[in-house]
Design a protein around this nucleic acid. Structure first.
Lengths: 193, 193
DNA sequence: AATAATTTGGAATATTCATTCCGATGTTTT
DNA sequence: AAAACATCGGAATGAATATTCCAAATTATT
């Protein structure tokens, strides 16, 4: 048809990341991606090289749209503890209200691909470090504003809360319900005292 | 050759679960399983029906060998807190000393298969409940012996510590190192006070 | 209006994969 | 020792897979 691309790159990556999210890398076929994105076979290979490259770009797209959510929460006029509470509440709510949602694409990618693809492990590791640092900054803020009292460096709690977050995603894929997830969050946040 | 099976069922399941552990369900081919187990194609299909069935049996084998480790720890003459400390120390040590070990087969199965295979999700959910209950009993024991002081039911801490454990597996697949994992364990166990 | 530029549809290719099947092999039983 | 029986090796099958390729379609430019 066209002289300029007929599709929106972000829409394609969003659709692709949804499929990868649902079925994993090895579990999704190119045909499934074609129907999900509406792209033609040749357009996909022209624009995204191959399946593996599309996967990596989908991962980064997912990561960036995650980052945006974190950033918009970060910009809210809340203290660090409130930001953490809001974030965890949001995650649990999402998991509970979307029981078919297959956890977190990055967690699934860590499980499926991190030992088999160095580039995948890089994206995952970067995400981990960034989110931990954000959490640590929230915790430092909460400490400064004296809404929490810590006996370890803020960085350590950032690592701990990131671990808690990863756990929640696995728990929801293991059949955990609302109260179970809420209990976990409650104990985790209570440790900031 | 034989009139009776030439192979040891447990050895086969152990080898198979190692491959599934390393590469996931969709990432491993029958051929890889054949070379890993030493079985012939026809023996495998004769004794294990098909790939999917072999996967489920491998999962249960893995779960049971995990259970045994937990049980032998449970039988030790330690209070509940010491058992938890020993367990977490063992997990972190294992993850650190075997950097190529691909996390936990059950966690990986949760990420890859739980939404696509009901039987897989059953194994995972059962494992979650059992381990949580074991942890809760250890915590109750520690409470009774007054080595910890809780302000929530033991069951809730069992859920929390199981979540922490799942998180550790993902963290190690995300490039977390020894101190990072130890920090997580430290904060998690400190919450029992 | 014609040419240039670029995407697209879908057929074609070549691998890889899970599974089936049968003759050969060996072991137990009589 | 020979018949009965179950396993095993490996070829064969057929479906699914990722990727390539080319002609048709469409728009921008001249």
């Amino acid at each position: 048809m066209p002289k300029y691309k007929q599709f929106n790159r972000d829409k394609v990556l969003e659709a692709a990341s949804n499929v990868f999210h649902e079925k994993g890398y090895n579990g999704t076929s190119i045909d499934e991606i074609l129907t999900a994105t509406g792209l033609s076979r040749s357009s996909l290979y022209d624009s995204f090289k191959d399946k593996h490259n599309l996967y990596l770009q989908s991962l980064e797209f997912y990561k960036e749209s995650n980052d945006k959510k974190f950033q918009s929460l970060d910009e809210k006029d809340l203290n660090g503890l409130q930001k953490l509470e809001t974030m965890f509440k949001g995650v649990v709510n999402h998991l509970v209200e979307n029981p078919d949602d297959n956890g977190c694409l990055l967690v699934n990618a860590a499980a499926e691909m991190s030992k088999q693809c160095f580039k995948t492990s890089q994206v995952i590791c970067n995400n981990k470090d960034e989110v931990q640092n954000l959490f640590s900054s929230w915790i430092s803020d909460a400490e400064q504003k004296k809404v929490v009292k810590l006996n370890k460096p803020a960085k350590v709690y950032g690592q701990f809360l990131y671990n808690t977050l990863c756990g929640l995603r696995v728990m929801s894929q293991s059949g955990a319900g609302k109260t179970e997830l809420n209990n976990v969050v409650k104990v985790a946040l209570d440790s900031l005292n």
